[in-house]
């Protein structure tokens, strides 16, 4: 950031000066024209309900907006309790993400690219964004939900704070969004994928989702992932884990076996299959699954303990 301290003799209008400084801060993202270039039609998601923020609750309001659109019925006061942080007078990004998870919606942070945001909106999904309406050094954080854009007028349309369908010049909005690290979030029902999921990051997203969401939601998410990437062993491991939590041992065993077909060395699938075999009263088969895992750098003791147990019951 290049910035010279203006001397008192410098007769530059304050707004021009501010514009220069902000442009300097904003980095080198695409400009308003470039951002809207791929679109020749205006788009407005009229059906996205508006939750006006109360007090400092733009976080809960924005989250309610995207969650409602993903098919949840919203308990707004509960959502405030869930994400508002009194000591900070606001809401943290990670808590928006976590809250979505605990309500069985997959939180997907978009790549930091304006086209990723507009593509999702064009596809019908509202996008929650973080804005910095202040300066880089004196930030003023705000959450809003992008619900449309007007290429001809170079405008972006949001539900923001207490304003529904707020149209703003794209240029100014890009400045605020760039200054907030280009952070954007969609919340997806478990059986949906975002437009352009990066496989590895989606895998981590679902693993984190599985740890929090209800098993049925996690199962649906893993099944959707398996349809997209049938070759991915961990998507089958995830299905197995979810089936198990739902009490369906047979389906869980089949899923772990499928993971091992795709990758015979998959240690977690082998261990989990062994564990289910042990529970199903087949200690010898279980011991055979555990044995190769003994000495595994990440699983060593756990595998050895399980093997000892299975071995003790095996009469062969």
């Amino acid at each position: 950031m290049k910035q010279t301290r203006p001397g008192p003799q410098l007769a530059v209008p304050a707004f021009l000066l501010l514009g220069l400084v902000l442009a300097g801060c904003a980095g080198t993202g695409p400009g308003a024209r470039e951002a809207l270039a791929p679109f020749d039609q205006p788009r407005l998601l009229e059906s996205v309900a508006f939750f006006p923020q109360t007090e400092l609750h733009c976080g809960p309001a924005a989250l309610a907006t995207v969650l409602d659109d993903s098919g949840l019925s919203i308990d707004y006061p509960a959502l405030v309790e869930r994400v508002y942080l009194p000591g900070r007078g606001g809401t943290l990004q990670v808590e928006l993400v976590a809250a979505a998870r605990s309500l069985n919606r997959i939180p997907w942070v978009l790549p930091p690219d304006i086209h990723a945001v507009l593509d999702e909106v064009a596809a019908g999904r509202p996008v929650l964004v973080l804005e910095n309406q202040g300066l880089r050094t004196r930030p003023f954080w705000h959450y809003a939900v992008v619900i449309g854009f007007e290429p001809d007028r170079r405008e972006i349309i949001q539900h923001s704070g207490t304003h529904a369908y707020l149209a703003q010049p794209m240029r100014r909005w890009l400045r605020d969004w760039n200054l907030a690290g280009r952070w954007a979030l969609v919340t997806l029902p478990p059986d949906q994928l975002p437009l352009a999921p990066d496989r590895e990051r989606w895998l981590q997203t679902l693993a984190d989702f599985e740890a929090v969401a209800e098993p049925a939601a996690a199962l649906s998410a893993w099944q959707t992932a398996s349809r997209r990437w049938p070759e991915m062993p961990l998507a089958w491991l995830g299905q197995g884990n979810s089936h198990y939590r739902l009490g369906d041992t047979t389906a869980a065993i089949a899923a772990f076996e499928q993971a091992l077909v795709l990758d015979p060395e998959q240690p977690a699938a082998a261990f989990n299959l062994g564990w289910l075999l042990l529970e199903a009263g087949e200690p010898c088969a279980a011991a055979a699954r555990f044995e190769p895992l003994i000495g595994h750098p990440g699983l060593g003791q756990r595998a050895e303990d399980a093997w000892t147990l299975a071995r003790g019951d095996c009469r062969d």
């Binding site: 400092l56 900070r88 007078g89 606001g90 910095n132 930030p139 959450y143 704070g161």
Partner: peptide
């Protein structure tokens, strides 16, 4: 961490 507040 940014705490989005969105004042009036």
């Amino acid at each position: 961490m940014p705490a989005g507040a969105g004042v009036i």
